[in-house]
Design a protein around this nucleic acid. Structure first.
Lengths: 340, 340
DNA sequence: GACCTAAATGACACCGGTATCATTGGTGGT
DNA sequence: ACCACCAATGATACCGGTGTCATTTAGGTC
């Protein structure tokens, strides 16, 4: 079976390869009749242009890299899904690239990635989105990139954000509206900037509702189940334990549920627990978790749309897109009952 | 900044581009002195060969496709991780390609993938691993591929399997050893062949232990949380409910835990529950789940090793590799107590 | 030192597209 | 009818590597 190249198509259609190329790329100045003829030959022969040859000629790879280091497998999955949907639409492919953000040869690692595969663009997810030495590197390298959920703003590249402060604020207000005033908080990993934002929303909500901020009620977690367990244990061992606990992600909230269960504290009757992220686990445990759903997939899609526009040098309406979080109420929260 | 191509390197080193190419590919018949000289220029200029140009010349893309359609995000993540580790080692890149296995244009979809990106190889995960029309297509197309966890054997391509029958057998025996004889079973999705295998292991274990197989104790689930919930509810509503339930995956097992909790049945004291897969949820719920850990990551690594050997036309020791499952005992199982 | 052989190296075509610029042909204005 | 002009098309170089085959060089033999 002969390989179908642009030359074969040209011969079949009785035109030059350049004309075939024009039809292929929808360029102007091709008569309607030849365009049609060439397209028929495309179908007839099942022609597919070689991305290698095309890439070599145009110095493009049609590959976009996705860099991540996130403990949540479902987060990664959702980002990938959102990114892929746009890639497929626009004819790009996605190269996934897990990396370790603390690793000292991170820069080498990414440089190699970029050079070896001649990426057309790069997508950064937290915590890479906020690493300034990375951003400097990328700015210098001229490689188009987009940042998902950064907290530090930067004018040199597009980014997509949600509003974690706002979401945490609303969640806390929701707990207050249920009658809770002793609300514990478990912070996220200090290396992730969203941790600070979620804390900020929590604190602002308390203040706005005239509730004092008690340092004892705020514990340092690390987004892991075990850190949530430890913090939960500390909070519930206080002489005056909180009646509601706001964990900075769902894994830690699930851990609090475990601690409560072991201490025979009934959730939600005696204790309300809420999380953040709407991870799969939030609906797979009992009681299911009240949480905040971030539009992760939509954010990734938006990010890729912006990135590809940048790659294709189309003007961007906005260098930053914001998407809304959503409060999801499930079974882990209930009105406060004084000494149930 | 001038772009560093093979020509630039050749000029700098004072040799022909072909000689540079030889050094690049570790070909024989290059004197030690020139090899060293060229390599120094590589380092000095930071030369990286263009995969496009190379691909165009050799008709290779150094891209491997990974096709999946699995409801478990963590399974997908683990497969990716295992696959990537080998890809990075061998200089390949991984193109992830979620697809819908029931979709009627699946074949078109994959054909497009293969043609458009000139894949060097393809990795099939369940349930694609067992879809014969796909396999026929691939066999015809001459594209090297590897199947992960197929149940139907096939001599034309390598595959990596674990032994689900065996693992389910052992799990059931474990429950029996705890004193249980009324053991419910929740089947997996009928489109996944492993479902049948897990059931088979369960039935064989009962038979071998002289316990009758009761059809009422076997319910059809679909690997989803909600299907597990429904089956769990049915099982626990029987006049003579089982004292242990074996769910074909962890999501369904988690759902059984929820049902038990709602019915005030204490796990593991009144009911033992076990799952399969060792999904993250299995350790993030309370009680944590006794389950079977499949070496998903290792299987993917093994699969990619075999695939790349095939691509590079190296001889394969074995066309099929088998990896061992592992029983993980956690908190959801306990010895049977007659009427707790 | 002449000769032979094998190792080392280079010249050049080629992979399948795109870019540049030249050429052709048709159309409208006067 | 003639010319100017623009749309349509083609010829050819080029992207950065690899493959083929010819040529040069080095080493060993007599």
């Amino acid at each position: 079976m002969e390989k179908i190249t642009i030359n074969v198509v040209a011969k079949h259609a009785g035109v030059s390869k350049k004309t075939v190329s024009r039809v292929l790329n929808g360029e102007p100045n091709v008569s309607e009749s030849t365009r049609k003829k060439v397209q028929e030959v495309f179908d007839e022969l099942g022609y597919r242009p070689s991305p290698q040859a095309r890439g070599l000629a145009t110095n493009q790879s049609y590959l976009i890299g996705l860099v991540y280091d996130n403990p949540s497998k479902s987060y990664v999955y959702d980002v990938q899904t959102g990114a892929l949907s746009i890639c497929n639409q626009k004819g790009y492919h996605l190269l996934i690239h897990p990396a370790e953000y603390q690793n000292s040869d991170l820069v080498d690692n990414l440089t190699t990635l970029i050079n070896d595969s001649r990426l057309d663009g790069l997508v950064l997810t937290p915590p890479f989105s906020d690493m300034h030495h990375l951003i400097e590197l990328l700015d210098k390298s001229q490689l188009p990139y987009v940042r998902i959920a950064p907290t530090i703003m930067h004018d040199t590249s597009p980014s997509v954000i949600s509003n974690d402060v706002e979401a945490a604020y609303e969640m806390t207000c929701y707990l207050v509206s249920l009658g809770h005033s002793k609300i514990g908080f478990i912070k996220g990993h200090p290396d992730h900037n969203v941790s600070e934002q979620r804390l900020e929303g929590y604190q602002k909500a308390l203040t706005d509702n005239g509730i004092p901020i008690i340092p004892e009620y705020i514990k340092q977690g690390f987004f892991t189940f075990s850190s949530g367990e430890e913090c939960g244990r500390k909070l519930l061992s206080l002489t005056e334990p909180p009646t509601a606990i706001f964990a900075s992600n769902d894994y830690m909230a699930a851990a609090v549920l475990k601690v409560a269960s072991q201490k025979n504290i009934s959730v939600p009757h005696e204790l309300s627990v809420v999380g953040f992220d709407n991870a799969p686990i939030s609906s797979y445990i009992w009681p299911s978790l009240t949480t905040v759903k971030q539009p992760v997939e939509a954010m990734a899609s938006q990010a890729l749309t912006m990135l590809i526009e940048t790659i294709q040098k189309k003007p961007l309406d906005n260098i930053q897109a914001q998407m809304e979080d959503e409060l999801i109420v499930r079974d882990s929260t209930a009105p406060f009952r004084s000494s149930g």
